[in-house]
Amino acid sequence: MVKKVYFRLKSRHWIKDKTVVLKDISQIITEGIPHESIENMKICELTEADKSLEVVDAMKVVEIINKNFPGTDVQVVGPTQSIIYRKEKGKGAKPILFIFVWLLLFIGAGLAVMNFHEDVSMQEVHVKIHQVITGEIVEHPLWLQIPYSIGLGLGMILFFNHVFRKRINEEPSPMEVEMFNYEENMDRYISVYENDAWKRK
């Protein structure tokens, strides 16, 4: 009987326990071999002293399958490596660091917008708009400037589609896409430079 295994690696996998078996990181279809024995095949082990991530190359999986079931026809579908991240316990948000970064962004954003307004002479433009619309020259057109300030925040929220996300549509926001791209890039880097298959040489 023909022995066949198809597997498709997940590009990313987070683990809590140390041992990684094949079904954790891939979808598997088998022919002529018991499914469970392939599924629960140990792929690698992240020891405590080990680094926080490990790259599993498809070639390594093929090697392991062939060692356990000689003469098997192994077909790789999809990504050729899977990156395993260790889920670190108790390492969620760091409150103090977070508050620091939050304040940094808050104050920085305030400073940046003031610099921008000075840079483009926003005050003069506002005085001019006030003069055009109402006909009177006012030194501080607060009727224009306070709504302007609130609109500034509204515009940013609108761009990121945060508040109205449920109401307007289900699409991901630019921020989520940006986050995804960043992680994809990191994964691509890691899968080349942290891959033991290439490092050995």
């Binding site: 304040l103 962004l105 003031m114 307004h117 400037q145 306070i146 302007y148 300030s149 500034l152």
Partner: peptide
């Protein structure tokens, strides 16, 4: 943080 910072900075300036 950025959004509120922008609003606060702008209001403070004007």
């Amino acid at each position: 943080a950025i959004v509120l910072g922008k609003i606060a900075g702008s209001l403070y300036q004007w």
